[in-house]
Amino acid sequence: MKLIAAFLIAICFSSAGQFVSKQLELRIAKLEKIYVLFSDIKSRIEFTADCAGDIFSSLNQMHSYELLPFVGDCEGRLCNGESFDSAWKNSLLIRQNVTGLKKEDISVLVSFGSSFGTTDTAGQLSNCEIHKKLVEAKLNSARADFNLYSKPARGIGLLAGFATIILTL
């Protein structure tokens, strides 16, 4: 019985390490998608001048943004008559929509939404460009975090697991 409990605790520690590592990986994947999203929005504004509803409707139909559920959520809210600012903010408030992202990443997204659609084309292109730069910085920091903490997190998890078994036995 004691042995089984020790094994379970060891698995928990190891899984926790794996989870931390996966979260760091997920953050990178999501930030990369956000970077692509901003580029996509920028080109749509520049070449088609589609309005917010149309842009988000077509983005939502693309499978490449499945990792960013707030895109679809925002489109749904826009269809229900919510203003863009509120639809964007509210879709980012739902925790499951932004899992894996840090508060600082979400604040970049919120800032993008608050200025989206409020200026002319040149202003919007600059807005996309600025936010792409901000995401790029976050992406670099996420990659650095991954390199720095991913392996240690997994290692510490495993180590803690073994330590538990040894101590228990």
């Binding site: 589609d50 917010a52 509803g53 659609g117 200026t119 084309t121």
Partner: peptide, 12 residues
């Protein structure tokens, strides 16, 4: 904003 569909750039 509603008239512009929250997209001023689209109605410049």
């Amino acid at each position: 904003n509603r008239l512009c569909e929250y997209s001023v750039y689209s109605h410049s």
